[in-house]
Structures are given as C-alpha cells and as structure tokens.
Write a protein that binds this DNA or RNA. Structure first.
Length: 448
RNA sequence: GGUCCGGUGGCAGAGUGGUGAUGUAGCGGACUGCAAAUCCGCGUAUGUGGGUUCGAUUCCCGCCCGGACCUCCA
C-alpha cells in the first residue's frame, strides 16, 4: 500500500516508482562545482533530495545515494591560474564549506561522493567508446559529441535540433560539425591544468564528468537522477546522449526528478545577475533547521521565493512543534511514519501536505496525546526535522546575565513590583530572550 | 522568436468535477498583575471571458498577467 509516485521529467507525468533492483535503489544527484560557497538554491536541491532519500530508506532495505563533486571546471582553472595555485588548493576550501553548510541543514551525506579528478580513466573510456561507435569526433584538438549521430537527441528536454540551432545565442566554434555539438574533451594550454589523453593534454567537458561518475558507481542503468530544472538542458540532455550512445541498449536513469528554481525577492539568482544568497550567510540569520524547513514549505516543483518573512514563519512553526515535543519528552519515537505525513510524501513529495499533517499531530500532542507525540517524532525523522532537543532549540546556552535578570524578576514579582518586573523583562528581551511565566514563580526562558 | 510552467484569503501555500487543507498575520474570548505560551471562536480567496457538465477552482478554448528554459547556473 505504500506506493511512491514521482513526477518524471522524462515522461512528463507522475509515475509509480518501481526500482530496477528493490534490494538496492540507486540514486544520483548532480553535486556542486567547487569554486565558491554554496548558495540557497543549492540548498533547496539537496534538502529535497535528502527527503526523497530518507523516504526511500523507509520503503526499501538499501539505497545507494551518489552525489558528485565537480572539481574540474573552467572557473576553477581560472581561479587557480589567477592565484598561481594547483586546483586542489582552490577546491579544498569550498568542499569543506559545502560539507559544513549542508550538515548545518541536517542533510544526510551521500553514500559515495565521487570527484571528477578521480575519474579521468572512466571519462576517457567513455569518450573512446563514443568515438569508436561514431557518436564523437576529433576536431582541432577537441573531441566533440555529434548530436546528428543520436536520433534521440533533444527528446528529453523536448527540443528538436532545428530549434536548438535557431535558438543558439553563442558563436559556433568553426570546428563543430553541428552547432549543437558539445565538447567531451578540450585541449589545455600549458598554463592551465590538464591530464594526458589519447587526444593530447587536456581536460574533460562538464557533461561527461557526470556520465562517468554515475556509470562507475551506479552502472549503465539506475533508478533516480536529480538536479535543478535549469540542468534539464543542456546538462542532462547531454548526459543521456553520452551514456546511452556509449552503452548501446542502456537507458541511463529511469526517473528524473527536477526541482524548480528558487527566487530571492522575486528574482532568479544567477551568476550573471550576481544576486547570490550564500547559504553560509543565511545560516547566520536563522537556525539551520529553520532554513531547511523554509525550503520544504512549498512543493519542490513550484517556484519558491526565499524571503526573511518566510524564514521567520518557518521558525515560528518549528517553535510550535518543539513546544509539542518539549511537553512529551519521555514519549518514545513511533516505529512508523503516520499516514497524515507519509501519504502526502508518497504523492510526489508533497511536503506542504506533510507539514499540514505535522500541525495536526502537534495540536494533539500539545493536548496531551502521547501517541500523536510519538508519531510526530517519527514524522520528523523522515523529514529530517527535530534534530536537536527542545531544550537546545529554545535555550541553548543561556547567558548568565539573562539568568540573573530572570531571578531578579521573580523576586520583583513576588513583592508585586510589576514596574520593575516589566523593566527586567525588557532587559531580558534585549539579550535576545523572552520569558514565559508559569504558576508559582516558575518561568521559562526562550531564545526569541 | 521557439518550448514549457503558473495565476487560490493580507501574506505563505496544498488539494479537489459537488459545501476551498495548513501556516502566518488580524479580530474576539478564556488564562495571566500585564504579557508570552496554550486553549476556544471569527473573518476574508480560486486572474478574466466563453465552452463542456445536473454541477468547475478543478476539464477544454481565447484573453490578460507572471515566471522558467533555449548561455555558465541547483
């Protein structure tokens, strides 16, 4: 009865998910190109895929999650050259930061995190296969994929080769047979990083890196491939072309899961606009879990406008959940994810629907329903929420000043000096805490 | 220009051919010294014009508006 349906970009429909091998579900997510800090858009991508992986792990005994690191790239090269450093010195920091930032969002690390620099052998292997079976050609030191050789080219992204040529906005290199042909291998000048190959010293194109890494770790055919919808063309179209042509009879990924882009203040983030919201900066403004929650408050296939107001609402909702958990600390986690959360998730990862279920459980848990509290905790696990204790969420390390003011306020209230009591409450607020009074002088301090 | 997606209450955001989730904000009440939290209650929404239907927010067509991809990008 637990059937997962996913929207498959390849077929443009929602389909019941059927693994190739139910004992090992294999999934690949296009990871970061490591020359800079991750931005909030990267985070949406990873958080959504994280929920999918957590859900799959509830449904199947084993899931192999591969997320690559693109550490060969022209921007990395440019930076290395600029600084006179080897590329490892350029990528090392961004890789570490990436792990830190994604960890702060409580996303699970992938089972395998391959790097392009470790897969030159597979890259060259695939290119050789493509040349051998007539899908690639050498020209002017480059190796190019011939789109005309692949009758299926363009089907995935829903384009015809004619449209691609008509829409081409870049100058077409003279050595290309077709305007749509793309680079598999390109020569490196002596001042740029390069690897030796049958076609001379050079470096791989971007698309071939993912084909090589998914092949190595998941095989010619695997279950799920994820990414942002801006990668549908050309990146994923090209991955499919390369992999399917290199391995005749294979179909590459079965299901393609693409998340919509995220906007910041109504505008798309892009390298050309330069309006990136760096995740590390966002994490200074709100707890990682609030950022994570904000990213799951809208469906992954609809546009999400990231805003401070949304972040505040996300925090407020989590506060309520944590209050419900705080009231039920000794209740054990339920074994099963409750239907009110599981069913929306099984329906193409309807996270807003799952959140509605969470609110229902929280209401019941606040009213003293221990079963609901246990279910709430189980639901949190599949969504990657409630990673800290209520005490840490609300208080963390309370500064001694705030604690001292709170004690003074208790005394003031006891002698009914309410003017002083209110003044002390304001003082505490200035320290970033709010105080809630309980019966008989009891109080609770919370981060505001 | 080509291809594609969307327009739901103040805001955010689901679902559905038959009395429109959920959150947040707002309002009233209980509780509180006052608050906060909690509880109870209230209000307001399906861009527009047609069509199909007993009935459409949901299906179809036109229009208006917004967005994405076609170029590095998650």
């Amino acid at each position: 009865m637990t059937q997962l349906t996913l929207y498959n970009t390849r077929t443009r429909t929602k389909e019941v998910f059927t693994p190739l091998d139910p004992t090992n579900v294999r999934a690949y997510l296009c990871g970061p190109t490591v020359y800079d800090r991750a931005h909030i858009g990267n985070a949406r991508n990873v958080v959504i895929f994280d929920i999918l992986i957590r859900l799959l792990r509830r449904l199947y005994p084993k899931v192999t999650y591969v997320r690559n690191i693109t550490d060969i790239d022209d921007k990395i090269n440019a930076r290395a050259k600029e600084r006179g450093l080897p590329i490892e010195a350029v990528t090392e920091g961004p890789i570490r930061f990436y792990h830190e930032d994604m960890g702060a969002l409580y996303t699970l690390p992938p089972d395998i995190e391959p790097r392009a620099t470790e897969h030159l052998g597979e890259i060259i292997d695939i290119i050789q296969r493509l040349i051998a079976n007539g899908h690639a050609y050498v020209a002017d030191g480059h190796v190019l994929f011939s789109v005309a050789s692949d009758k299926d080219y363009g089907k995935f992204s829903g384009r015809t080769p004619d449209e691609l040529i008509a829409g081409a906005r870049v100058d077409v290199a003279p050595y290309k047979r077709d305007a749509g042909d793309f680079v598999l291998w390109k020569p490196s000048s002596p001042d740029l990083p390069g690897w030796s190959s049958p076609w001379g010293r050079g470096r791989p194109g971007w698309h071939i890196e993912c084909s090589a890494m998914s092949w190595k770790h998941l095989g010619e055919n695997f279950d799920i491939h994820g990414g942002g919808d801006d990668l549908i063309f050309p990146h994923h179209e090209n991955e499919i072309a390369q992999s399917c042509c290199a391995f005749p009879g294979s179909h590459f990924a079965n299901v393609w899961v693409h998340n919509r882009m995220l906007l910041v203040n109504g505008e798309k983030m892009s390298k050309s606009l330069g309006n990136f919201l760096v995740l590390h900066d966002v994490l200074k403004k709100a707890p990682g879990e609030a950022v994570r929650f904000m990213l799951m408050r809208s469906h992954y296939r609809s546009t999400l406008d990231f805003s401070d107001a949304g972040l505040r609402e996300a925090k407020a909702e989590l506060d309520r959940f944590y209050r419900a958990l705080e009231k039920n600390q000794d209740v054990p986690v339920a074994a099963e994810v409750p239907d009110c959360v599981l069913e929306p998730l099984l329906d193409d990862l309807n996270t807003p629907g799952a959140i509605a279920g969470l609110h229902g459980l929280a209401d019941a848990a606040l009213a003293g329903d221990a079963t609901a509290a246990g279910a709430l905790k189980a639901a949190g696990q599949v969504l990657g929420l409630f990673n800290v204790s209520p005490d840490e969420w609300f208080r963390g390390d309370i500064p001694v000043e705030a604690q001292a003011l709170a004690e003074q306020r208790v005394a003031a209230r006891q002698r009914k000096d309410f003017a002083e009591s209110d003044r002390l409450r304001d003082e505490i607020a200035k320290l970033g805490y709010l105080i809630e009074d309980g019966p008989r002088g009891a109080y609770t301090l919370r981060k505001s």
